[in-house]
Write a protein that binds this DNA or RNA. Structure first.
Length: 334
DNA sequence: GGGCCACCTTTTTC
DNA sequence: AGAAAAAGGTGGC
């Protein structure tokens, strides 16, 4: 038993490939044509497609007693479809000529509304890391500590692990063996601290609080610094003004917005981090974080044309993103 | 209190 | 080909 439905949408409001593979969510898998995406939202396994005008055709593979109204609602919520991206693109274009040049080439790049628990542990994995490897780590995390939901096209899909399970004493060791590196102990300790604070309910509760308050509370969690905290605020806690400053954003900002930073070897300290965020909030307004998502996406090499990439080559890592086959650890030959 | 630097591992760059 | 730097940073000194 599956259920299927159509959600009214358009290609300017949503581009699945951009929005699902630009480093917000890490668990979507596409068919070779990149026309159909399968992944997990909560405990449900969805397949998503768009018709030629952009309407969202979807299937839920393990609906149990789910009503179509509910599944519609889940997708509207996940993609935040109530917010008009067309309207935002227009506003940003009027405010800033830099973004005005970029966004026509990147329609439909939406900021997602991801489960905060999943987002927290995923972005703890993201430090000093690349999208290809983060994807692999998160998938391993779910396979190891999540529970199997269903199988689609011979691929098993798993729920995101419960906090209680991730707090287990052996988790850090197991994750070390799975090549999580120094992030292994952060994950286990973050789960412990999170449980002490009040678990999932506490995290979801941050949606009702001010940006600054939510952000500083997240900083109590091991492995969560200013940047990861902002990612959780932006992609899970409805803080549209939250603006994660990473290496990409720093490059973009120094190149186009704050010339004094150009060509300088600066490491981002607390003051500079805030300066950059404030500057871009002034430039882009209340949804500055959403604008940042678009700019970040335009800066990813695997989305750029040869001309845009400006010398940057499309690399193996980018291809990894595009591949269907799970990456198998290379074995040494004798 | 702020500026360094180590941290795991893989990929990319030079 | 092989070393070095970078990859959506953070914590500790």
């Amino acid at each position: 038993m599956v259920i299927s439905s159509i959600l009214t949408c358009s290609i300017n409001e949503l581009n699945l490939r951009y929005s699902l593979t630009n480093g917000q969510a890490f668990r979507w898998r596409s068919n070779p044509e990149k026309s159909k995406w399968t992944g997990v939202i909560g405990k449900l396994v969805f397949s998503l497609q768009q018709d030629d005008i952009g309407n969202l055709l979807y299937t839920v593979h393990n609906p149990d007693n789910l009503d179509i109204k509910d599944s519609d609602q889940i997708l509207e919520d996940y993609f935040q479809l109530k917010t008009s991206l067309t309207e935002l693109y227009k506003e940003w274009s009027e405010m800033d000529e830099v973004i005005a040049k970029v966004i026509p080439k990147y329609p439909g790049v939406r900021t997602l509304r991801i489960d905060p628990v999943e987002n927290l542990f995923t972005f703890i994995c993201s430090s000093n890391n690349n999208i290809g490897r983060i994807t692999q780590m998160v998938n391993n995390l779910c396979i190891k500590f999540g529970s199997k939901l269903t199988t689609v096209d011979d691929v098993d899909y798993f729920s995101f692990p419960e906090i209680e399970i991730l707090s287990g004493k052996n988790v850090a060791n197991t994750l070390r063996e799975l090549n999580f590196g120094y992030r292994a102990k952060y994950i286990q300790k973050a789960a412990e601290v999170l449980l002490k604070e009040g678990g999932s309910d506490w995290l979801f509760g941050l949606r009702k609080q001010e940006y600054s308050e939510a952000k500083s509370k997240l900083l109590k969690i091991p492995g969560v610094g200013p940047k990861v905290s902002d990612c959780i605020c932006l992609m899970s806690l409805d803080k549209t003004e939250s603006l994660p400053v990473d290496t990409h954003v720093f490059q973009l900002v120094s190149k186009y917005y704050i010339p004094k930073l150009r060509n300088k070897k600066v490491n981002i300290n607390v003051g500079l981090y805030k300066e950059i965020g404030d500057h871009m909030r002034k430039t882009w307004g209340k949804h500055a974080g959403w604008a940042q998502t678009v700019m970040f996406t335009s800066d990813l090499k695997n989305f750029q044309t040869a001309e845009e990439s400006d010398g940057k080559k499309v690399t193996k890592e980018d291809k990894t993103e595009e591949e269907d086959e799970p990456k198998i650890k290379k074995q040494k030959r004798s």
